[in-house]
Nucleic acid binder design. Structure first.
Length: 898
RNA sequence: GGACGGCUAGCUCAGUUGGUUAGAGCGCUGCGUUCACAUCGCAGAGGUCACAGGUUCGAGUCCUGUGCCGUCCACCA
């Protein structure tokens, strides 16, 4: 067939290249999409791509931290979300995907702090707040630009006209409004709490910023004083200067009699009032079973103190030294003070035991300094407070209810439990942070006055709260702050984007922030709008390296998305991330895997190239009026219809990997290896049109997975419209065709032909017959229909690498000696004149052994009366049929061995 | 300490409600370059589904227990 010149989309006449080179097309294609405006659903409505009243399908992109460029985990997130968005856009939904980035307060501040320390040898305090923040904003500008570029590289069809940043002006206004509303409602309050304090960095740390270091420590067992009845144990005697209670387990008979009593004692020279309290969290078996309660310097003790209304005595100050008012200890650092206290105890004969134990020391993840838990004034969100606007339910209750009632579904389902466990144990949420970069707290002070409002108060002498808000406060508002809240929410009514796109349909994010982020979003949305933020939460796993290790810069095992995109193409990277893993599970990725999908993209390219060059005239002719349909035509259309059905079902149920594998199997197996090969030998008037239909729908099905190569091919096919906004394949046309073929009654015939071809190839290969050698082939069959079937498909059978020189079809003849033998059910095949007797014998023996094994297993099954009586009739019938056909084949093979 | 996940071919992983001889990709073995593709084609080898019980006519799949690996949470005074 002569090679034709194909018009490429840019108008230049040229031949399609032999292999697909992503770099030649990807950027151009993305530009086309972006310029078209169809990433924006409003433009789609305007141009009739989707109906005005079409269902909305909204995803807000989990905003990547601007601390660094994107890694493969982000790529995975983008691939999944883009798949969903493209699928729904093609289905005709008003698909909106909102882009943005996260200021990631603490993380960003730390990165910049480290950077200036390294580059200029300065701390943030050296620079001062204003200069330091300028440095941060410079940094943000750079990384943000990189992130946005990378996101486009992934092919993400985000609506850039709605781009947001968690710390831009609209979001700042939203945060202020939220804070003030919550404050007015009494949900936000100021209170004291133990925070993780790093005495070196002079800052609080979030719980997840604390690291634990295994170490050996000394556990001291002692009495406060000789007149105190209970012995306690501690690794930190110096903090005991601030003890206000001793806690024991309420079931502990040793101490029951003391519970409720107060002892006034002198501990190492300092007078203390100690109350004996009962708390079921005290482990009777650890140490002496009694715990000295130091409310100011232990999270757990603080909680006990609150419950029991105990006084709080601060022992250690912000520099990690003993506070004033502790006599000789004041001003000493904790280690010195510890030695002094222990010495005192020894002198007074109060120290009973000193032993080495293993324990976990909390240290600052930045500098490794031991953390001091200290009480400090912070802002909180009350999660248990009943709120009027929530029908007297608390934020916690609303968030739990949403999951329990199934308003919010989790994928995979097991994360529902994790979400609920976390929610049920949630304490008030501390939202203030002692850092500079972040949302300012809309609170002003003037001597003893306090003002909370969206704008600074009038008058002189007011100063703003120096703290900033936890980054999750603003990202918790992400689903609605990006859709125009609060402007779009007046008098309790949604308007604009908020009315059109909220609640969103899917929140797709990593399972590691289920608790940190997802839970907060639910509470914030319930408070602000009285509705859930999203209907489904799809959780993906982590992207790990080949050996299952986390990718990290320090280990140097990370794969840079841009590098692999340059090497293998975006589509290949996307497929490698989408296929071969399941929701909520981690996935390993390495270059060989990506290379495999690069090969696949090329395969699809070549399939298309073949169809386009050979059937060019009919390629855009998408019509289901075929004049004549052969067995294989019916089969491929049947397979295609099943594929469309299954893919839709898979995508609706978030089985992306399965959908991808199925598509791959059809494309490479059914279409390339069988149907296209058939087309080379079987000519009929419908072929071009069938191929046109198949390729059209196949490209559409693949588009959400591999947007670039599919769009490129689509454009090569001289389509005026973008594949991006094509309608997703429907079943209508296929249904008609199928009705005409009695819903697939041709299927067994098709399988028979396939089996005959495979059997011949196999027999030749095992006998080491050179592929080029043509052999006379004789086929026996008692069944008249089969004979006709084979006769009708002779050209095709001969064409498909069976190396037949002459094909003879007989009813039944004598066994042909010295020939290669194969059997397919009733059909016997002899390949004459190329037998390798030893190999042939071996092969038949192997097949006999194989058959005998399955036959005996099946016979036993059918002998079992209970199986026959209790199993469904269908299953039993199937087993019987199988057995019969195996037995027939076995007999024939045995005949050959004689 | 608590919760969750994994354990299926040499490697990476699928396996939807229990029911053909348990699948795929990569890798491996043999053969193959004439007209879509060597980023390819054809054929093949390779698994007692971690282990032990149980339910069932029937278990990779459901239940109980054990082991190993991993993750998250809580952290011991």
């Amino acid at each position: 067939m002569e090679e034709k010149n194909i018009k490429i989309s840019n108008g230049v006449n040229k031949e399609l290249p032999k292999s697909y080179n992503p770099q030649d097309f990807e950027d151009k294609i993305y530009e086309m999409w972006e310029k078209s405006g169809y990433f924006n659903p409003d433009i789609c409505v305007r141009d009739g791509v989707c109906a005005k009243n079409a269902k909305a399908f909204t995803i807000v992109l989990p905003p990547p931290n601007i601390t660094d460029k994107l890694h493969l985990g982000h790529s995975s997130m983008l691939a999944i979300e883009d798949l969903l968005i493209r699928y729904h856009r093609m289905k005709g939904d008003r698909a909106l995907w909102v882009p943005g980035t996260d200021h990631a307060a603490i993380a960003t501040q730390n990165v910049v702090e480290r950077k200036i320390l390294k580059e200029e040898g300065k701390t943030r305090h050296d620079l001062g707040k204003e200069k330091f923040l300028k440095k941060v904003w410079d940094f943000v500008g750079v990384t943000q630009a990189t992130i946005l570029k990378q996101t486009r590289k992934m092919g993400a069809s985000l609506d850039w006209s709605r781009q947001a940043f968690t710390l831009d002006e609209p979001r700042k206004a939203a945060v202020r409004k939220m804070f003030v509303d919550m404050y007015k409602e009494g949900v936000i309050y100021q209170g004291e709490r133990i925070v993780n304090w790093c005495p070196r960095c002079h800052s609080t740390l979030a719980d997840d910023e604390v690291e634990y270091k295994e170490q050996k420590a000394k556990l001291y067992t002692f009495k406060y004083s000789s007149d105190f009845p209970i012995t306690i144990a501690t690794t930190r005697p110096e903090t005991k200067l601030g003890d206000t209670a001793v806690a024991v387990n309420p079931k502990d008979d040793r101490y029951k009699k003391y519970v409720g009593k107060i002892f006034e004692i002198n501990f190492a020279g300092i007078p203390l009032k100690i109350k004996i309290i009962a708390d079921r969290n005290v482990d009777m078996k650890f140490g002496t079973g009694a715990l000295g309660v130091t409310p100011a310097h232990s999270m757990v003790d603080w909680q006990m103190a609150e419950k029991n209304k105990l006084p709080v005595i601060k022992v250690i100050n912000e520099d990690g030294k003993i506070h004033d008012g502790f006599g000789e200890y004041s001003g000493k650092d904790v280690l010195t003070a510890r030695k002094m206290v222990v010495k005192k105890l020894e002198e007074n004969g109060l120290l009973e035991k000193e032993e080495e134990i293993e324990n976990n020391l909390s240290v600052c993840y930045r500098c490794g300094t031991a953390i001091e838990p200290l009480p400090s004034k912070q802002w909180f969100i009350a999660v248990d407070k009943k709120i009027k606007r929530l029908n007297n339910k608390s934020l916690k209750e609303k968030a739990i209810e949403a999951a329990k009632k199934g308003k919010i579904k989790f994928i995979p389902e097991r994360f529902t439990k994790k979400y609920l466990d976390w929610m049920e144990n949630l304490h008030d949420w501390c939202i203030s942070r002692q850092i500079w970069f972040g949302h300012e707290i809309p609170v002003w002070y003037k001597e003893k006055e306090i003002y909370v409002g969206e704008k600074a108060p009038e008058g002189i002498g007011w100063y703003q709260d120096p703290d900033t808000l936890d980054t999750w406060f603003s990202s918790g508002m992400w689903t609605f702050s990006t859709l125009g809240w609060p402007d779009n929410f007046q008098k309790g009514k949604k308007a604009g984007d908020l009315a059109d796109y909220h609640p969103t349909q899917v929140l797709e994010t990593g399972y590691e922030i289920l608790t940190l982020w997802v839970s907060r979003m639910v509470m914030m949305s319930e408070f602000a709008l009285g509705e859930i933020p999203f209907e489904n939460v799809y959780l993906h796993g982590m992207v790990l390296d080949e050996h299952g290790k986390k990718m990290s810069k320090s280990k140097g095992n990370g794969i840079d998305p841009i590098e692999v995109i340059d090497k293998f193409g975006t589509d290949a990277v996307r497929l490698a991330l989408l296929i071969g893993n399941t929701p909520g599970n981690d996935t390993r990725i390495f270059e060989e895997k990506i290379a495999g999908y690069r090969n696949f993209a090329n395969k699809l390219w070549n399939i298309s190239r073949y169809i386009i060059t050979n059937y060019e005239l009919r390629i855009t002719n998408y019509k289901f009026d075929f004049k004549d349909l052969t067995l294989f035509d019916k089969w491929i259309l049947f397979q295609m219809r099943n594929l469309i059905m299954a893919t839709r079902d898979d995508l609706e149920n978030y089985r992306f990997s399965q959908a991808g594998e199925r598509l791959r199997e059809f494309t490479w197996g059914d279409l390339a290896d069988w149907y296209l090969e058939v087309c080379k030998f079987e000519k009929n008037s419908s072929k071009g049109q069938i191929l046109s239909v198949i390729l059209n729908d196949l490209l559409k099905l693949w588009h959400p997975f591999m947007p670039f190569v599919t769009e490129t091919i689509w454009q090569e096919m001289e389509n005026k419209k973008l594949l991006l906004i094509e309608k997703y394949p429907e079943l209508d046309g296929y249904k008609e065709i199928l009705a005409k073929t009695n819903n697939g009654d041709f299927y067994p015939e098709m399988l028979l032909i396939q089996k005959i071809i495979t059997a011949i190839r196999n027999a030749r290969s095992e006998n080491k017959v050179e592929p080029a050698k043509k052999i006379k082939t004789v086929v026996y069959s008692k069944i008249e229909e089969y004979k006709k079937l084979i006769k009708d498909h002779e050209i095709m059978i001969r064409g498909l690498k069976t190396g037949i020189s002459e094909l003879e079809i007989k009813v039944k003849g004598e066994k042909i000696a010295g020939a290669i033998y194969a059997v397919v059910g009733d059909i016997e095949i002899y390949l004459i004149g190329a037998v390798d007797k030893e190999k042939e014998k071996e092969r038949i023996k192997k097949e006999i052994a194989n058959l005998e094994k399955v036959i005996s297993a099946t016979e036993n099954k059918l002998k079992n009366k209970e199986f026959v009586s209790k199993a469904p009739k269908e299953i039993v019938k199937k087993e019987k049929e199988k057995l019969a056909s195996w037995q027939e084949a076995l007999e024939k093979l045995k005949e050959q061995m004689k």
